[in-house]
Each structure stands twice: as C-alpha cells, then as structure tokens.
Simulated scan of single mutants.
Amino acid sequence: MTKDQKTRNDGGHGAVSRWFQHRMNARVNRKIRKGRGAFMGMDVLILHTVGRHSGQMRETPVAWFADGEDAWLIVASGGKNRDPDWHLNLMGRPGRASIELPDRPAVPVTPQVLEGAEREEAWRRITAAQPRYEKYQRKSGREYPIVRLTPR
C-alpha cells in the first residue's frame, strides 16, 4: 500500500493521532456515563453507530443541541475536507444508531440530515449557541451536515 493510499484510508490521521483520539473519546464517554455530559461548554452525548465496513460497534462523544422536546441536533464537523467517520457510519447504517445521555440508558434513534430552510434555521440556532461552529465550517471549505436524531 502506498503512502497516499494509507492517508486516504485513515483520513489523513496517523496511528498516534488515532490512538490519542480513541483515548480521549473513551475518557469523555466515561464522564458522560457518570452524569457529566458537558465538554468545552457544550452538552455531549454518546453516539452509538456500527462501522459501515467493519460491522463493529462504535461509540463517539458528540456535542448536541435540543430540537424540541424529544429530538437532538448534531453537527458533522471535524474531518477537515470530508465528513467524519461517525457521520459516514451513522448514515451508512441508520437503523443501528442509538444515543446515550448522562445517567440514561441508550435510546435507539433515527437520523435525518437536514436540508434547505430547515438546515439553515437549525444552523442559526446552533451558531447562536456555539459561534465556534461558524469559524470551524469556514476553515473547512465545506458545509457541515446537520443531523436530527429522533427516538425510534
């Protein structure tokens, strides 16, 4: 395998970077399960997905924003010039998704990518609550997908 193929396969992240990210994710997940569901001033949940290629269970801490009484919005930020793996897994196997909130059992959810006016309204609310997303998106050169999660 060439260096270019390795870079494409791992999203441009080296083994040390992936190891560090997995350790950080595990640490944040432990905090959420202990009832502390905030990180960097944002509410965080644990998103359960299944790897679209591997079939393995994945748990990723993701910032969320309320969308009414029983739905959550998450932003597929990160990943620089492409959607993060968790988003690709979520949309690749949407029927296998669930979330965990602090001190609560996992809840199966249905993901829906928002588009058009609905996305713009959600984006306004998200960036009003966390302006850093606007800056991150500008630097990325792509429009971040916004996903609504609703209980199944």
Score class of each variant (00 low, 15 high):
A38G: 09
F39G: 01
M40S: 10
G41A: 12
M42N: 11
D43M: 00
V44E: 11
L45W: 05
L45R: 00
I46R: 05
I46Y: 05
H48E: 06
V50P: 00
V50K: 03
G51K: 00
G51S: 00
R52C: 13
R52D: 13
H53K: 15
H53N: 14
S54E: 01
G55Q: 10
Q56N: 14
M57L: 12
R58D: 10
E59T: 14
E59D: 12
E59H: 15
E59C: 12
E59Y: 13
E59Q: 15
T60A: 08
P61Y: 04
P61H: 07
P61Q: 06
V62I: 15
A63S: 15
A63N: 10
F65H: 12
F65R: 07
F65D: 02
A66K: 07
A66C: 04
A66E: 10
G68H: 04
E69Y: 00
E69S: 10
E69T: 09
D70T: 14
D70L: 10
A71E: 11
A71T: 08
A71H: 08
W72F: 11
W72T: 04
L73N: 03
I74W: 04
I74T: 07
I74M: 12
I74G: 00
I74K: 03
V75E: 06
V75S: 05
A76S: 07
A76Q: 03
S77G: 09
S77L: 01
S77N: 03
G78E: 02
G78L: 01
G79Q: 00
G79Y: 00
K80N: 10
K80V: 09
N81L: 12
R82L: 06
D83R: 13
P84N: 06
P84Q: 05
D85F: 01
D85N: 09
